[in-house]
């Protein structure tokens, strides 16, 4: 993250050390004082893609809602105590298929600076979790990419340290970032899963704007594996692009040629899917992306590829993946 032209600061957020650190990191950013982050983030009629040209940072104090139950769209990998938190809203990347474009009213990034309140709520949730035989499974890079923002604020590192010291907690850090060096100094812990989203080279180049190349992601993953981290590979979302079968099977072969298969913790596989309302909002703001104008099928409040296409994609790619990974370690989202 090279710069923010503006930083909006809740009056209450100023007293936190993280705010001080960030304001020192961006001394030339214009500072605008606000009462509540929603005054800026929640304005009507904001244009997500125009804001992506010049993303602003909003420093805020989260007041409640430090953990949420996992939704049907997310993947709990079979963990019964599945939660996520929102340490940040929005992401530094601008992927064409990203649901955040339709979910949030703004492309600006909100960073909640009262980290200790999140930690406290997590400790409490761990102690009070319903299924005591299982850990509390917490996704900490949800609706954002925490590791991609690590050079601004080391939240991934803080959460890894927190998890390492907290019994019965398992956290997932999902990312597209290649910035593994930012957490390399930390000792690998079984209480953390580093989950990398991977896409074929061509997909990453065309549809994952601002995100690191496949090669850089693979290098970061291999290094993390060598350092003993539990690494999850997320082939999700799979897009039905031209020659998708060839492109994706070729890509999976490449991934498993490069990465030591035996060190893969588990894998997730899912085809593109999105809340129907989000897609409707996104289509209003951008009419330039082929993947958003695919003739999707609507199932309830979800849009995805027609059933036959979904089955065809999952079946083909699952067959490919099971050449490398046992099926019980592959979570599928159809």
């Amino acid at each position: 993250m090279s710069k923010f032209s503006h930083i909006y600061i809740e009056d209450e957020a100023l007293g936190y050390p993280i705010s001080t650190r960030i304001l020192e990191r961006f001394p030339n950013a214009k500072r605008v004082w606000i009462g509540d982050y929603k005054e800026v983030f929640g304005r009507l009629n904001q244009h997500f893609q125009i804001q992506k040209r010049s993303v602003k940072l909003i420093l805020a104090v989260k007041k409640g809602g430090y953990l949420y139950r996992g939704s049907d769209f997310s993947q709990g990998f079979g963990y019964k105590n599945f939660y996520y938190n929102t340490l940040m809203l929005n992401c530094v990347y601008n992927c064409d298929y990203c649901y955040l474009q339709g979910m949030y009213p703004s492309a600006n990034m909100v960073l909640f600076v009262n980290l200790e309140d999140f930690f406290e709520a997590t400790r409490k949730a761990v102690a009070e979790r319903k299924y005591k035989s299982e850990p509390l499974y917490l996704s900490v890079s949800y609706n954002t990419d925490l590791l991609a923002f690590e050079s601004v604020v080391p939240y991934t590192a803080y959460w890894i340290e927190f998890a390492d010291a907290c019994d019965d907690l398992l956290i997932e850090v999902r990312t597209k970032s290649a910035n593994y060096k930012a957490i390399k100094h930390l000792k690998a812990t079984p209480r953390v899963i580093l989950a990398w989203t991977l896409s074929p080279r061509k997909v990453a180049e065309v549809y994952e704007k601002g995100a690191p190349s496949l090669d850089r992601r693979l290098e970061a993953i291999r290094e993390a594996m060598e350092d003993g981290w539990q690494v999850r590979l997320c082939f999700d979302p799979v897009l039905r692009i031209r020659n998708w079968n060839y492109v994706y099977t070729d890509f999976m072969e490449e991934v498993f040629r490069y990465l030591p298969v035996e060190k893969v913790y588990d894998v997730s596989l899912g085809v593109f899917r999105m809340n129907a309302d989000y897609l409707r909002r996104i289509r209003k703001l951008r009419q330039d992306s082929d993947i958003l104008f695919y003739p999707f099928e609507v199932r309830g409040d979800t849009v995805s590829y027609p059933l036959l296409h979904r089955k065809e994609m999952i079946s083909s790619l699952l067959e490919k993946l099971t050449q490398y990974i046992p099926e019980e370690r592959i979570a599928v989202w159809e």
């Binding site: 606000i34 005054e39 800026v40 125009i50």
Partner: peptide
């Protein structure tokens, strides 16, 4: 009540 424009262009003016 407060109002905030989105300043999406680059400029050299003081704000």
């Amino acid at each position: 009540r407060s109002y905030y424009p989105d300043i999406v262009i680059e400029h050299n003016l003081p704000e």
